[in-house]
């Protein structure tokens, strides 16, 4: 089986026209699966649920599998209302990014996907969720090849494994909006500043080192996590899907590169091309069981066992 490619949900706040344009172009790209929806902030309403459904229908007609992604951090009662509505839809499968979505979907007897925001670190957790209707799960981004291998060895029949393969890493979520804070604005009067940063707002150390990216209530890595050079290993481990997380520029070019890789085109030149497209350089430490920000090619021998 050829490994599948997915386009993850857009993490950023983009202009409405840009969102529509992006998915129009994505309709013809080689990705097999597209995740749609707002996963970061419920105040971002330029694209409404009905719009996502309409985009989803277009993509489906173009042969894509479409999944609707849920909000990652739920706080207000109104957010729970939107989540209920999302989980009640009978047209598309839902990616649960919080356990409350898992609860709503499993009690409704629906099959679902869990995104990187749901913690599945071991086989027993995976088994419990498969019993609840889990069809596909995304490996937590901080886990590397060894736990992936162990999880694949013990995974229940039928469940698909997806790996976050390309993108700025989703590292943390807060009650506080850091983009608003960086403009000295309170969250309740954020003036939708996120729209000015379609790839997030860069945070540097006091030595001018690119470190993190602020994306509303989410904190991401400044470097782009990429696993293309490990493609043969991921195929060996029977990973089903590789996820590409959209950036404002070059996302569909990146999809083409991964597509060429899965079709057997030599990886070294593809990797080189890929690196030239990433905004501030690459990292892959998590996959290699090192600090996430590191970039190398060797699996670490620091196995992080108890001291």
């Amino acid at each position: 089986m050829t490994i599948k490619l997915s386009i993850g949900p857009i993490q950023y706040f983009w202009e409405r026209e840009r969102v529509f344009e992006f998915y129009q172009q994505a309709a013809d790209c080689p990705a097999d699966i597209v995740y749609l929806g707002e996963v970061i902030c419920s105040k971002r309403r330029l694209v409404k649920v009905e719009d996502w459904v309409a985009i989803g229908r277009e993509l489906k007609q173009n042969g894509k599998e479409v999944v609707l992604s849920s909000l990652t951090l739920l706080e207000a009662a109104s957010e729970m209302g939107s989540l209920r509505k999302l989980c009640q839809n009978d047209e598309f499968m839902v990616e649960a990014n919080d356990i409350s979505a898992v609860q709503l979907l499993s009690t409704a007897g629906k099959r679902f996907v869990t995104g990187p925001g749901v913690n599945i670190y071991n086989t027993r957790s995976l088994q419990v969720l498969v019993n609840k209707g889990l069809k596909r799960w995304v490996l937590p981004v901080e886990l590397g090849l060894q736990p992936l291998k162990d999880l694949q060895a013990g995974r229940p029949a039928g469940v698909e494994t997806e790996v976050f393969a390309l993108g700025r890493l989703p590292l943390a979520y807060s009650a506080r909006c850091y983009t608003a804070r960086s403009h000295n604005l309170p969250k309740d009067d954020c003036q939708f500043k996120c729209i000015e940063y379609p790839d997030g707002r860069l945070l540097k150390t006091r030595e001018d080192e690119d470190f993190l990216v602020l994306n509303g209530i989410q904190t991401q890595s400044a470097l782009t996590h990429q696993v293309l050079d490990q493609l043969p290993e991921l195929e060996n481990l029977a990973v089903d899907i590789l996820r590409i997380s959209p950036q404002h520029e070059h996302t569909l070019e990146v999809v083409d590169i991964f597509d060429a890789g899965r079709k057997g085109v030599e990886l070294a030149p593809l990797c080189e091309h890929l690196l030239s497209l990433l905004p501030l350089g690459a990292c892959n430490g998590y996959l290699l069981e090192q600090a996430g920000m590191q970039f190398g090619s060797e699996v670490s021998h620091d196995t992080q066992q108890a001291v």
């Binding site: 990652t72 943390a172 979520y173 890595s221 998590y286 996430g292």
Partner: peptide, 10 residues
């Protein structure tokens, strides 16, 4: 759901 520490240190 906070991975900042492992991003910097593993």
């Amino acid at each position: 759901r906070c991975l900042l520490s492992s991003y910097a240190t593993g």
